[in-house]
Design a protein around this nucleic acid. Structure first.
Lengths: 183, 183
DNA sequence: ATTCCATATGTCATGATATACATACGTAAA
DNA sequence: TTTACGTATGTATATCATGACATATGGAAT
């Protein structure tokens, strides 16, 4: 019944109690590679999670800013999250519009096609640089500290490394594709 | 107005006139890595493409099988396809449920978590083997023949190589993640 | 005879997602 | 003083995508 987004939110709330607004920023900017959502999807999902008994909220009144709702995970929510995390999952086919264009590239002007791939090579190189920066910060923070797999950052590190591998491969492929067209 | 799926279909029809049923099989099984669709999405999309003047159809009566509609691309359809192919496109953020589970892996039992990644390592290795097989067939076919970038298979080859790179990187990452958990 | 399968085309209900609309507070800049 | 911005929470609409439902043909298997 609970969607993938629901579990993504549940995990973030399990890491730290927070508001829908906080979750919204996290799922648009931060280490939420591989899943995104707008606030218009998050607020209704939080309502569903709460009616399912997975989270509760308390209203915090603020003087300088509008009131906010801080959500906290319940025992039932934690149990649901733990069951879902290790539940088998089929390989999810990827969806990528650039690859659809690539399939139709025989119809394109070669110069324009090469430019398209050069542009994406740059975009993925930039994203890779962002991820590498986060990686450096993370590994610096861990100097001398014990690295445990039952801490929230463990999953973040794994996903970050997947992001790095993904962007590096994508960048290299874009470069190769551009070279194939230019040749 | 036309969706990504619409252009994907337009390209397949530009390669070869065919029926909705043929397109359906292509978009579920064949070299349509990175985009998929069920027939329930394809038939309405074909109707939209036809009402937009991008394709036409002729009914072919068959004695042993039900009648079929063979779709052919129009000049307007080809023009629309050519304009779309090289139109700039922003990097599309990926969506992958396994990575959402990975982010929440600190909540998982280590043995079950490792099994999850080992399972996906196997799945991606299998898909990689399928792609490598197609690659071998493709390259064998080209022995001695001229390779031109204005032929339909050129795009297929580029997407295939992206598929290979994607699956290889994913497999390696799954293995690494499993090792990180087992350590 | 009945069932099952591949071919062939469609609709419908549901859920997921994106964009735009909508309101409200307080501060800072123009 | 009006405008814009960041915070904060929601709704409404349209589109995209999946799974189920629906029908029909002819051949092959049970």
């Amino acid at each position: 019944m609970t969607s993938t987004l629901g579990y993504a939110l549940l995990n973030l709330i399990a890491c730290e109690s927070q508001t829908g607004y906080d979750l919204s920023r996290t799922l648009q900017e931060r280490i939420s590679f591989f899943w995104q959502a707008k606030h218009s999807q998050i607020y209704p999902e939080l309502a569903r999670l709460e009616s399912a008994g997975y989270i509760t909220h308390e209203v915090v009144r603020q003087s300088d800013k509008p009131d906010k709702k801080i959500y906290t995970i319940t025992d039932a929510g934690l149990a649901a999250l733990r069951a879902w995390v290790v539940a088998p999952l089929k390989m999810q086919p990827a969806r990528d519009e650039l690859l659809v264009k690539t399939a139709a590239i025989w119809q394109a002007d070669p110069a324009a096609a090469a430019a398209l791939f050069r542009d994406h090579e740059r975009q993925h190189a930039e994203q890779l640089a962002v991820y590498e920066g986060i990686r450096a910060t993370m590994e610096e923070k861990w100097q001398g500290s014990e690295r445990r797999r039952d801490q929230p950052w463990f999953g973040s590190y794994l996903t970050l490394m997947r992001g790095i591998g993904y962007e590096r491969e994508y960048r290299d492929w874009c470069r190769w594709a551009a070279e194939m067209i230019e040749a």
